[in-house]
Design a protein around this nucleic acid. Structure first.
Lengths: 342, 342
DNA sequence: AAGCTTTTCGCAAACCTTTGCGGAAAAACA
DNA sequence: TGTTTTTCCGCAAAGGTTTGCGAAAAGCTT
């Protein structure tokens, strides 16, 4: 049951040469004669020699590993971003270690501490929903461990990040609603302290202004972005004397849940209430009616975050933090196009 | 920009004692006087000493890391299983390194080789769709690296695995259809060489026999489990002279896509065609009508796979391979209950 | 043939930790 | 006081790799 790996020493002993010669021979160092190099490489292949990465990491002080902290791995958005991260890091020869905070501030802190103790070369983080203070990132900065945020971000003046064009996207959606005959446009938002909530809210408001629509607190609801929370928020909106004729949702999952509740109450989508979501996950085109959604380039966001991080940790100089804003596009489907405009 | 971590040597120098004493003091070894231990621990805390995991791994020949190989991380089922693996391994002090094969045999091989070179302590694998020969697992076995399969498995007589009760589940679904008035029950299956396909097909056939229904090749379609593949398979079924009145799908994603196509053609679900899927992902209750599905205990499957693996690698003896079969339950929703039985 | 350059390889330190063993000093005992 | 035990700590090896430097051997020049 014992794993037994051959080491440089084993090869050296067998060939009756020194360890350093074996090491050099394997990488075609000019100090080694071609004949010896040949012989060493032959034996190495035959005995299936693979360098022990832990010895190298110990020596080089780098792990070729990056840590990823996300709120939840089962959510389409995060899984897809991870997929992009994985694609870029694999290409660059890095491994990824993934931990999920389950939206818990406490767990987020623990995870980060663990990852730091693991000596990852860098971190890519999406804040948990509970996270409202950001002191625990001081440790990372003091450690000189490169860090990149995506989607839910903070301290952007010090730390690089990748986000969507939330403001513009929300503003566009609001106009899109208006152009399709909606005048009472509601917004089911996420927790107020998150940047995505703030930015999308600001865009929503700006869009209302653009269209000359009144801003009404009645039409604003927030939720914790769970299906249950979305349902409650929807019920609040449906309880209004004058009901909304459109609902913008902070993400697709919330939209799905809200749509379900709206249909259950007997309203028609989109004629009674139009819908638009954020993310554009696969299921947006599966639900009935198909959901209009702000398409996020999730895979590319992951790649970009990884690129930012690896650039940072391969250039010795600290470099100024960068804020990458990814362009989204509105994918228009049935849920937002009223057949009978008022 | 240089990361600087304090080592035992640093502490030793500062306290003018030997490295070994520092090491022992930190773990309250009886050879160290309480006063000295106190002093050392004090300094360690103050200077934020954290042991270098790579030095320990080098010494101990274990990495406290397990590798996970899955076809695709963006799929609900896999993400959810990973979530279960993560929960168990975190509890046991292991990290996980995730790689996805993207359903490619070639990539699967590369990944496994990489993970082995990384010296992970063990592997948890779900076969890619392309994988039809299993020689590349010899390397793992020769390496004495513990290995556990889940869902899509092979070589079960030599290698432990965690699977759902596919045969029973499919058989039950078939009966469920029959009890709800369906007599022409179709099955959109996955690739024929996969165990999940074979087992579910066998259960489906057995169920037909139970109900005294004829087995017809016309009612069998297979696909590559993508939405597009599912669409094509559905079209084949809808092209029959006598159409099916029920469709069992190899998973929910396939069911969603098939439902979409069926609705697009103007058929009513469930009255014209009833539906049941496998997995029971979140969206099963979001689509319209809500999808009846075989609920897999995904999270628990992940936990179980992790438990199997860690047991195996913590007990020095090889132990006999175990096959864990997880019980599923049929979650009945609207898609399979016809309002008007024939 | 003597001196010089080039080629080819080995020694040893370094990265950080754990641990068996030995040794000195202190304490306990006779 | 002399001897034995106990307490407390350090030495050194081990794990596998990389790399600066020194040294031997071979080749070359004149």
């Amino acid at each position: 049951m014992e794993k037994v790996h051959v080491s440089l020493k084993d090869l050296a002993k067998e060939l009756k040469i020194s360890i350093s010669s074996v090491s050099r021979a394997l990488k075609n160092h000019p100090d080694i004669s071609p004949e010896l190099a040949q012989k060493v490489q032959e034996l190495a292949r035959q005995k299936n020699y693979k360098p022990n990465p832990y010895a190298i990491r110990l020596l080089k002080h780098e792990s070729k590993t990056i840590g990823i902290v996300i709120p939840d791995i089962v959510t389409y958005f995060y899984a897809s971003v991870i997929s992009g991260i994985e694609s870029y890091t694999k290409e660059k020869g890095y491994s990824i270690v993934i931990s999920s905070s389950q939206e818990s501030y406490q767990k987020e802190q623990n995870i980060i501490e663990n990852l730091l103790n693991l000596r990852v070369d860098g971190l890519i983080v999406c804040l948990s929903q509970e996270t409202a203070d950001y002191k625990h990132f001081d440790k990372i900065l003091e450690d000189n461990t490169p860090l990149v945020f995506f989607d839910r971000v903070c301290r952007t003046s010090e730390i690089s990040s990748v986000v969507a064009d939330n403001f513009e996207a929300a503003r566009n959606v609001t106009r899109h609603f208006y152009e399709n005959g909606c005048t009472r446009i509601a917004f089911i938002n996420g927790p107020n302290h998150l940047n995505i909530s703030k930015e999308r809210l600001a865009g929503y408001i700006e869009g209302l202004k653009d269209c000359g629509l009144k801003i009404s607190n009645d039409l604003l609801a927030s939720c914790n972005m769970t299906p249950e929370g979305a349902k409650v928020a929807t019920q609040k909106l449906l309880a209004l004397k004058v009901k909304p004729d459109a609902i913008l949702s902070i993400n697709d999952t919330v939209a799905f849940s809200a749509m379900k509740e709206v249909k259950r109450r007997g309203y028609k989508i989109p004629d009674d209430i139009a819908f638009v979501g954020f993310t554009d996950e696969f299921h947006a085109s599966i639900v009935d009616p198909e959901l209009t959604s702000v398409m996020h380039p999730t895979f590319e966001m992951g790649q970009e975050a990884a690129r930012l991080l690896i650039n940072q940790l391969e250039s010795k100089t600290p470099g100024t933090p960068r804020q990458v804003v990814m362009k989204t596009t509105l994918v228009v489907r049935d849920s937002s196009i009223k057949k009978q405009k008022k």
